[in-house]
Amino acid sequence: MTQIPIANPSLEATAAAGAAHVNCQEFSFYYGDNQAVTDVTLDFPSFQVTAIIGPSGCGKSTLLRSINRMNDLIPGRRTTGRLVFDGQDVYGPRLDVVALRRRIGMVFQKPNPFPKSIFNNIAYGRRLYDSLERRELQAVVETSLQRAGLWEEVKDRLDDNALSLSGGQQQRLCIARALAVDPEVLLMDEPTSALDPRATARVEDLIAELRGRYTIIIVTHNMQQAARVSDHTAFLYEGNLVEYGPTARMFTQPREKRTEDYMTGRFG
């Protein structure tokens, strides 16, 4: 495979500022004998939005889910290379998954609120490790909902079951839920694939608002979405990182033939 130079001028600046960031060094991921991600070397710039694109089955979700070790549940998984978060090897023997996931939030393809009240959904993560008083907890819930742009819509019915919300609202609830535990990184696994266009636009706006506050890594099969919301784009094909660079350049002057083919819809 060809090594792709990482052109990322802003990286040094943020890393120097002490922000934890995610990077992969020749990282590979296997399901049993199946190699899903092959030797990916990639640095996700802090406080920016990075999109991972590629045809379905290219390993982009696997790569994303490797970052917070969501793939631990799968039997027979195996990794080589390094995936580093905040200077620590995510797959190192001393790493604590529970602590890792607290710092790396995740939003899933399908909105998956707990069958609890809206309030309890947001408070869920915080209650795990903090015994806050009711008032403090209310403040956390309000801030998180406001950041997710949902506060105005639900402030009068915080005790309603979260399942009574619409699909788009549920997804923003899930984002608010992730924000409530003060993560540093936010992983989004095709967050709008189950939503209608209006709800999608709302979530995309939200991503733009969250930019600069969190390191966001978003997997999407929708190239327009990648172009709209991301600062950087990584193109994955059959588990290999084909090309990585600033989104504006990737979409206008792709360096690799395969990137161009994919973006112009010749396969995928």
């Binding site: 917070n68 969501m70 549940l73 529970v98 602590a99 890792l100 996931r101 607290r102 710092r103 939030g105 995740m106 899933f108 399908k110 998956n112 609120p113 707990f114 069958p115 869920y124 993560g125 795990l128 490790y129 899930c174 839920r177 992730a178 535990v181």
Partner: peptide, 17 residues
């Protein structure tokens, strides 16, 4: 369902939680 479990794990919950 798996989604529910993943939602909880992703927030840093242990298996028991």
């Amino acid at each position: 369902g798996r989604e529910l479990r993943e939602g909880s794990y992703a927030l840093g919950a242990t298996r028991a939680e």
